[in-house]
Amino acid sequence: MWEVEAYGTGSTTPPSTGTGLDDPVKKEIAMKLVSTFENSSLDWRAQFAYIEDIDDGRGYTAGIIGFCSGTGDMLELVERYTAKKPGNPLAPYLPALRRVDGTDSHEGLDPGFPDAWRRAAQDTVFQQTQEEERDRVYFNPAVSQAKTDGLRTLGQFAYYDAAVMHGESGFRSIRAVAQSRALPPSRGGDERTYLHAFLDAREEEMRKEEAHSDTTRVSTAQRRFLNEGNLGLNTPLYWSVYGDAFSLTS
């Protein structure tokens, strides 16, 4: 799991141009973008109850950021929720979640776990915990690293979205490949050149998995914003994912 300090020592002053992804307005844009990538909907708050196995080898995928039963983040989410509210519908499944961690198994989860997740998702405490874990594990570390690399809002989003799909190790691998091809702004490189290298590496990584081989969340969304020179991720935004068109005009 990620912590903010996991990205290494040292820091740089955040980019002076534009606002960062952690600005509330920009963060809301980020949540809507990822929701279109993950759930084909701009309404990210409608995804607290989402749960299914998408056959990507990670077991159940659920919630606003795609917490997975096979990758540890779902387990930590349910543990933190249970610490706040011990009698919740998901608490009885903690032993099974610990057993299946690292696998795609449903053993001990079926048949009741999906219904329990949907019941828990009606609880504002669980909703709040999902948001806290999204930020702790993915959003805050990714934005922090992007700022250290001298990236503006679009680059911060590119890091965040890569973290969401590929996790810490996958993100680090993509970033390492990108930096072997182009220097980030913090090391004197051109921001747009570096971001193209990062998105190239991201698409290459996505094509390694059949379940993630459709790269439109990069090629017809993030790459489009980059080609338009929209490094501040400013509205209006127009993009398409999996053949569906989306826009944000304000």
Rank of each mutant, 00 (worst) to 15 (best):
D161A: 11
H212A: 11
L195A: 06
D200L: 01
A46C: 06
G20E: 06
A142Y: 04
Q127D: 08
I64E: 15
Y7L: 11
M206S: 05
R136N: 11
G18S: 10
L226K: 07
D244N: 15
R80N: 15
L97C: 02
P236R: 01
G87V: 07
T19H: 12
T13C: 10
S144P: 01
D101T: 04
P89K: 02
L233M: 15
T36C: 10
T13S: 13
Y238W: 07
E3V: 12
D23F: 04
G72A: 06
S40H: 10
S41P: 03
T249A: 14
K26H: 10
A245W: 04
Y238I: 05
F171K: 12
A83K: 14
E168C: 04
L33C: 07
A211V: 08
V218T: 11
D22E: 08
R119C: 05
A62W: 00
T71P: 04
P86K: 00
K208P: 01
L42M: 13
A182K: 13
C68F: 00
E228F: 03
L77E: 02
S105I: 01
R45M: 10
F246P: 10
L33G: 05
L94K: 00
L75C: 01
N234E: 15
F139A: 09
A121I: 05
G188R: 07
D110M: 03
Y238L: 09
G170P: 06
T193I: 10
V125Q: 13
H212E: 11
K27R: 15
Y160W: 09
W44V: 00
G66I: 03
R175C: 03
G155C: 10
K84Q: 15
G189S: 12
D200E: 09
D149V: 03
I51L: 07
T153K: 06
L199F: 04
G243V: 08
S35A: 15
K27D: 14
A211D: 08
L237R: 06
S213C: 09
K26Y: 02
R192L: 12
F37Y: 14
S11H: 08
C68L: 01
E209R: 13
T103W: 00
A211R: 13
R175S: 14
E5L: 09
T124G: 03
